[in-house]
C-alpha cells in the first residue's frame, strides 16, 4: 500500500484543523498528501426546468469557485511551507465520495475534521464524520 494520506477540506475551521494535523502526520511519516474537496450533490434532488437548463453553467462556476476560493489559497499556503499536496474536487454524497477517493487512490489514511454538532442536527444533516467512522474502508482519523 502506498503511503498516501487523504484529507477532507472545505475551507471551514474544522477542516483547517484536520489539514494541519494531517500535514504534521504526513511530514513525520513521509507520506504523500491528497486534499479532497467534495461539493454536496444528490442526483435525486428536484430541479425546476430553468435550473435544469442552467445546471451545466452553475456547475462550471461552482467548480471554478471551489478551485480559486478554497483550494488554491491553501495549496499556496502549504507550498510556502514546502509541502506540495495533490488536490481533487468532486461532486456527490460527501462521505461516500471521500471513501471512494481513499479506496481508488489506495490511501493509507483518511483525515476529517468534525464540526462538533451532535444529536438532532447531526442526524438531520447527516454528519460526514459519523458516516465515515461507520463506513470508511481505510483507517480514519477524526480531528476535533
Amino acid at each position: 500500500m502506498s503511503n498516501l494520506y487523504v484529507v477532507a477540506y472545505d475551507g471551514s475551521p474544522a477542516s483547517h484543523r484536520a489539514l494541519d494535523f494531517a500535514v504534521d502526520c504526513a511530514e513525520r511519516a513521509g507520506a504523500e498528501l491528497l486534499i479532497a474537496h467534495v461539493l454536496a450533490w444528490s442526483p435525486y434532488s428536484f430541479l425546476t426546468p430553468e435550473e435544469v437548463e442552467e445546471r451545466h453553467t452553475r456547475r462550471t462556476e461552482e467548480l471554478e469557485r471551489a478551485k480559486t476560493a478554497v483550494m488554491d489559497p491553501i495549496v499556496e499556503n502549504l507550498a510556502a511551507k514546502g509541502v506540495t499536496p495533490r488536490t481533487v474536487i468532486r461532486y456527490g454524497h460527501v462521505a461516500e465520495v471521500l471513501n471512494d477517493i481513499a479506496a481508488k487512490e489506495g490511501a493509507s489514511q483518511l483525515f476529517v475534521g468534525r464540526t462538533g454538532h451532535t444529536g438532532m442536527t447531526a442526524r438531520l444533516f447527516g454528519a460526514v464524520t459519523i458516516s465515515l467512522a461507520q463506513a470508511a474502508s481505510v483507517p480514519c482519523t477524526i480531528v476535533p
Partner: peptide
C-alpha cells in the same frame, strides 16, 4: 452515469422535472 459527471443534471432529475 459516469461519476466524473456528478453535479450535472442526472437522468432521474430530468425525468422528475
Amino acid at each position: 452515469s459516469d461519476p466524473e459527471n456528478a453535479g450535472e443534471v442526472s437522468h432521474f432529475q430530468a425525468l422528475a422535472t
